[in-house]
Every structure is written in C-alpha cells, then in structure tokens.
C-alpha cells in the first residue's frame, strides 16, 4: 500500500492538472457565452477572434484550428454551431467539476490523516475495502 505522502503527492499532481483544465474550460465557456449572446448576428470573424483569445490563453493552435475547420458561414447555422459547442463545453465542465470535487475531498481526507499521523508513522491505516484507500465518498452538494 502506498504511504500517505505518496498518495498526497499523486493527488496534488492530479489536482493541479484538473485545475488547469478547469481554467481552460472556464476561458472557453466565457468565449462561448460571449458568442452565444450575439444570436444570429454572430459571424465567423467573431468566432475567430474568440478562438485567438483562447489560443493566447494556452489552447493548442492545432486543436483550435481543427475545431473551426467545420465552422459554417451561414449565420443561422453558425448560431446552431456555437450553441452545440456551448452545450458540449457545459457537459465537459460538469464532468470536470465532479472529478475536481472528488479529488478535493480525497485531498481533505489525506490532509486530515497527515495531521493525525503519529511522529515516525509512515503507512496509513488500512481502510475497509468498501471505502477504497481514501475513505468514503464526499457529501452530496446542495443537500443543505
């Protein structure tokens, strides 16, 4: 069984990557929202401008160019295209939030165990198999 410090290191690395993804998705969502409120007045130039900002924020140029390759020119079709991407981003955002919440919870559990760790103790106490190595699931948000 990995010791508490190893688990802690893995979780922090995972959380760092997830947080970066969260920042990027936030940036994408912001641009998508800005395009969506233009309804059928949105133009390919608007989309390209938004895409440029995302590339400047760190999104891979190849990925962005690939995504825009199938962008329609027709205003109505472009509006639908933006709406579809907005929906995709929202769905991914939801998945990412769940992952972030779970990872945060695990970090809390590990942090508290580190706090309770006896001097010189390395390995964490074995958890019941049903709980997994990091304890029970986090609380359901919004239950208050």
């Amino acid at each position: 069984m990995p010791n508490l410090d190893e688990v802690s290191g893995e979780l922090q690395a995972k959380y760092s990557k997830l947080s970066s993804a969260r920042d990027m998705l936030d940036a994408v969502q912001e641009q998508m929202d800005g395009l969506a409120v233009k309804y059928d007045t949105v133009s390919p130039e608007d989309v390209v401008t938004s895409a440029g900002k995302l590339v400047a924020a760190g999104l891979a140029p190849e990925a962005m160019a690939g995504m825009l390759a199938d962008m329609p020119d027709n205003s109505q079709a472009l509006q639908d295209w933006v709406a579809q991407h907005q929906k995709d981003v929202a769905a991914r955002s939801e998945q990412l939030d769940a992952l972030l919440g779970e990872t945060r919870h695990q970090m809390g559990v590990v942090g508290l165990r580190q706090l309770m760790q006896r001097p010189g103790e390395i390995a964490p106490e074995a958890a019941p198999p049903q709980m997994g190595p990091l304890g029970a699931a986090p609380p359901t948000e919004g239950m208050m």
């Binding site: 802690s8 922090q12 947080s19 945060r104 970090m107 942090g111 508290l112 580190q114």
Partner: peptide, 21 residues
Amino acid sequence: PESRASVMKALPNLQAAFFDG
C-alpha cells in the same frame, strides 16, 4: 515541532480541499 511538521505537510491538501473554488 512534531505537530508543526504534520500541520505543514497537510496544508496544501487542506487548502485545496476546503478553500479552492
């Protein structure tokens, strides 16, 4: 010192768990 070491080690995890977002 022993308590302090435990606290400092746990801090990054607790910060992320309780305050991020």
